[in-house]
Simulated assay, not measured.
Amino acid sequence: MIRYTPKIRNILNFIDEYGFITSRICAYVFFKNSKCQLEMARKTLRKLANNKDIVANKDKYGRELIYQFKKSTVSDHKYYLLNFYAEIFNQVTEIEYFKLEESWGSRRSDAHIIFNNIIDGQDSFKSYLIEYDKFHKTNPVEKYNEIYDSGYVQEWYREREGLENHFPDIIIINYSGKCVESNRDEYKIIGLDYNFTDLLQKVILP
């Protein structure tokens, strides 16, 4: 018998919103401060699956179990973006905002994240626009110069955060972690590989 506690309901709501969850994502997001977070996440998801609230499905690479309401293929795009979200969630004080597929006029970012982190007693505000680039087809310089020049992002931050002329740095997620450099001073481009190597140094602490 499962008690549908607020945590259990939040896990189910996450699956409803994003289409899936893994043990690692569940551990980092819903058992962040637990001593045995991964084991607790696995135990909880197994219980939900045994209770037929969700189903367990092997991902297409056989890496790990994907928990869903109904078995379906999870795109690499969504898989890595939500794993990135979970990694950030696990390491920072607070995620203020996260959205997949954020539109800026005729262009869009794969994801948009804002988080706050208290470091040595000081509040550190960070924001990023994120691209998942499986086949290195994205030209981030061309794309984000166009987005920058449109002014949509700056207006968003002016209205929501009260920041003038703010434009986030860009994160490119691909298998190598390599990316081109920005050709302007208003933002920089950061490359991350699929394991998010050096996430702390590249994204959280700068």
Rank of each mutant, 00 (worst) to 15 (best):
K126E: 03
R63C: 08
G62F: 10
G151F: 05
V29M: 12
Q201G: 11
R24D: 14
K99L: 07
F14N: 06
A56S: 15
L192Y: 00
V141C: 11
K134F: 04
I66T: 14
K43H: 12
H166M: 06
V55P: 09
A111K: 05
L81R: 03
H136W: 07
D193L: 07
D133C: 04
W104H: 11
N116Q: 12
V74T: 10
T197N: 13
I118V: 15
Y97G: 01
L200F: 10
C36D: 14
W104R: 04
N139M: 07
T73E: 15
F196K: 09
F84H: 02
E102W: 03
I8F: 07
I95M: 01
K35Q: 12
V29G: 05
Y148S: 04
K35Y: 14
K99T: 08
R9V: 13
L192K: 06
D123K: 14
S106D: 11
N139R: 10
N117H: 15
Y28F: 12
R3Q: 11
E181L: 11
F30M: 11
A86E: 05
P6C: 01
C36M: 12
N90C: 09
S182W: 03
I15K: 02
I171S: 03
W156Y: 15
I171H: 06
L12A: 03
N174Y: 02
Q122I: 14
T44W: 04
D198G: 03
Y79E: 08
P168R: 04
G19A: 08
K78Q: 07
N165Q: 11
L48K: 09
E159T: 12
Y194E: 02
I114G: 05
Y4T: 09
I147A: 01
T93Y: 04
D120E: 13
T93M: 00
R9K: 15
S150V: 03
S106P: 00
D193H: 07
F98P: 00
I2G: 01
K78F: 08
Y152S: 08
L82Y: 07
N13V: 06
N90P: 00
E17R: 14
L48M: 12
F125Q: 06
G177M: 02
Q68D: 02
I204E: 01
N174I: 01
Q91G: 00
Q122R: 14
P206Q: 01
F84T: 06
T197P: 01
Q122H: 11
Y4V: 08
V55R: 09
L129N: 02
D110G: 02
C179K: 09
P6Q: 06
V203M: 00
E87H: 13
I172S: 01
Y79C: 07
A111L: 07
Y79H: 13
N139H: 08
Y80E: 03
L12N: 03
Y97F: 14
E186T: 10
D193R: 08
V29L: 06
I171V: 10
I15F: 06
K202Y: 05
I171M: 02
K71V: 08
S109F: 00
Y18C: 07
N116A: 02
F30H: 09
D123V: 14
F167S: 06
E17H: 09
K60C: 09
L205W: 07
D185C: 06
G19S: 05
K43Q: 13
R184N: 10
I204P: 04
V29T: 14
R63K: 12
T22L: 08
D193M: 05
E142I: 11
R24N: 13
